[in-house]
């Protein structure tokens, strides 16, 4: 009995140490920082204050938050709009085809996302592949502004985060019993009605799961807004990064971080309220 317990401790210890050292302690430190004052030289004064949190509600930062949310929501929405047709398309394909297509979705994961984002510059810039193709087809007179604006950011976000939506949505869609779909057909539901009345309600958990995994990184992926937004557009991710690296106001950066964490937990609470099961979120 004792040996069994010792074994259990030994195998779980690395995970516990890892979580403590690299997740819990940094978060506690950030929380601690967020209640301190910053001095004008980028240092920290060990004095309790709520000022950092109040500062978030400054109109400048509210605007950044709103913009981030809009970009996040749009990204999430576009990802959902792509994931559903893809998953439904896969439903009645053979196992080999399905596996192949899902593997294709996974392949981009093998390359660093920063590098992939740089790759988009080649495609999207004024003299990039998309613009030259369109103008040589005489579809456009002058090159489109595809990057260094919100559009570029959203393209980059959707591209980077799409697999996180496709996988849970596909997994939820593929769990629907084919006979339930048949039953709906049999009772007179056409494609659109089957989608609205059967597929969507049956896969809400998957969509919510995917939405969390897309929306939260989307408001934080500063490198995408840096590269494809040309550094002109600020989202929450950039804001935090700037507080730590440029503005050197660590307590304020910490406060925004904590704000984001609390916000995420709120989203999960809402999910639970509307009847979602936590284990369907993959143990979040």
């Amino acid at each position: 009995m004792n040996r069994k317990k010792a074994f259990q401790i030994i195998v779980t210890l690395p995970v516990v140490v890892y979580s403590l050292l690299l997740i819990l302690i940094p978060i506690v430190y950030v929380l601690f920082l967020s209640f301190l004052k910053s001095d004008s030289f980028g240092g920290i004064e060990y004095q309790f204050t709520l000022e950092n949190y109040l500062m978030i509600f400054d109109i400048i930062y509210i605007k950044i938050l709103l913009k981030s949310f809009i970009i996040g929501l749009l990204t999430t929405f576009i990802c959902i709009c792509i994931s559903y047709p893809f998953s439904i398309f896969l439903m009645d394909k053979s196992e080999t085809k399905r596996n192949l297509l899902i593997k294709l979705v996974m392949i981009p994961f093998l390359t660093n996302s920063l590098i992939r984002t740089y790759g988009w510059i080649v495609l999207l810039r004024k003299s990039g592949v998309v613009n030259t193709t369109l103008s040589s087809l005489n579809l456009i007179d002058k090159p489109l502004n595809l990057m260094y604006n919100n559009l570029g950011i959203i393209i980059g976000m959707v591209y980077t985060l799409l697999p996180f939506m496709i996988l849970p949505v596909y997994s939820a869609v593929s769990k629907i019993d084919a006979r339930v779909i048949d039953a709906a057909k049999d009772l007179g539901a056409n494609k659109i009605k089957r989608f609205i009345h059967i597929i969507v309600p049956e896969t809400l958990a998957g969509v919510f799961n995917g939405s969390l995994m897309v929306f939260i990184p989307a408001i934080g992926y500063f490198f995408i807004s840096d590269i494809l937004g040309g550094g002109k557009i600020m989202i929450v991710g950039n804001l935090i990064k700037n507080q730590f690296l440029t503005a050197r106001n660590w307590p304020f950066g910490a406060a925004i971080s904590i704000f984001l964490i609390v916000f995420t937990f709120l989203l999960i609470r809402i999910y639970k309220k509307i009847g979602g099961k936590l284990d369907e979120l993959g143990g979040l």
Binding site: D177, R179, V180, D182, A183, A184, D186, H197, E202
Partner: peptide, 13 residues
């Protein structure tokens, strides 16, 4: 015509 399926195929939600 309507079908009663083998596993009933009720709409779970």
């Amino acid at each position: 015509v309507n079908t009663i399926f083998q596993n009933f195929a009720l709409f779970p939600h």
